[in-house]
Design a protein around this nucleic acid. Structure first.
Lengths: 197, 197
DNA sequence: TGACAAAGCGGAGCGTTGTTCCGGATATTA
DNA sequence: TAATATCCGGAACAACGCTCCGCTTTGTCA
């Protein structure tokens, strides 16, 4: 039953077993990521899913594709929360702060995700790109609104903020001496306009 | 020619060829680190040094030991600069800022060093420990002095500051969109006392 | 229903890296 | 010089990423 793709070219939908396998892999990957982080061996995910490694590579050519697929919904939710917060908060700065809280929560609860995002190697380049494409406009909108309202000084670039926050979330997440939120709070403090200019 | 160790036990100094090899390895490692980062394969370092891999493992059981040895002098220099800056600056906050500048310079010029420091895996645990042992007291002294002078608000923990700065230096160092120094400047700004409390 | 081609699958296999092991070479000392 | 404690090199093993290829399953069409 060929159908029509958005590009207009005739396209055949995937075989039923392929779709089933893709879902099985996603579920298994999510479980393994929780247990062993996003750097877990592909073999381990394949074993948990009960499929061969090639199956995973076929559906998700790079590790970044797999990670992206697993967290797709949460990334979308985070992206959509931005405008909503801007509407529901009485101050753009407050909306920015709450949104950053969401973003940080997301990062620190996925072991090694922040590390992957900023990884020096480019194994995760596609993941980095996806985050930027999806979330940078949101943060830009929040920043613009806060600047517009005169709550923060202008000049900070959205990319720089995003990456700085991501960076601050890197590393072991079970160290009681380090709470990225405190430093991010300090960063935001530094961003505020002097109370009396 | 047995000599006396600090513990009082008789100790034989290393064989001459072992000392030579250790130095050769250090030199080669320094060169390879510059070219390929601190994650470079041991084989590569061994080849460059013209020794076997076991020789490297014998002298430097973990990668952290090797990295530590290579950068030992620079870490010491950074540690010693702290008190000196405190003496020569007219404001403790200024000394703190200059010292952080030194620290950041050191981190960003060694490819992947910041990444290694905050690595989620514990391959570099000893390196992290060494940095903390050596530099945390220095940063604590600078912070205390600045708090004492009423230039920054109290409450920030030295460990948190060190790690935050290290984290902000993580990742690709050739991205013109991201300059860790700007964000660190913002952090310091957030640390300042409100001008008019 | 019953072929048959296309699509999909599994795991063996190759290359890379970390780490260890051991027979042989070498420096030191008597 | 000869003995021996020390050190060395690279082979060997394990873990992992990724690919290749013979076999299986699925969808289709007579």
């Amino acid at each position: 039953m060929p159908t029509e793709s958005p590009t207009g070219k005739a396209v055949r939908s995937k075989r039923a077993d392929a779709q089933r396998n893709q879902q099985t892999v996603l579920t298994a990957a999510a479980e393994v990521f929780v247990a062993s982080g996003v750097d877990a061996p592909i073999r381990q995910i394949a074993a948990r899913a009960g499929v061969g490694m090639a199956t995973i590579y076929r559906h998700f050519p790079t590790r970044a594709d797999l990670v992206t697929a697993v967290y797709h919904h949460q990334i979308e939710a985070c992206a959509e929360a931005g405008p909503n917060l801007l509407d529901s908060s009485d101050s753009p700065f407050d909306a920015l702060r709450q949104w950053i809280d969401l973003f940080v929560d997301f990062l620190v609860t996925k072991h090694g995700l922040a590390d992957a995002l900023q990884s020096d190697s480019d194994r995760f380049a596609a993941l980095h790109t996806y985050f930027i494409d999806r979330l940078l406009p949101v943060s830009a909108q929040l920043l613009d609104a806060a600047v517009e309202a005169g709550e923060i000084r202008p000049g900070i670039q959205p990319y720089e903020l995003m990456r700085g926050i991501g960076n601050l979330c890197v590393g072991r997440d079970d160290d009681p001496r380090y709470d990225p939120r405190r430093l991010i709070g300090l960063l935001l403090q530094g961003l505020r306009q002097p109370q009396s200019p």
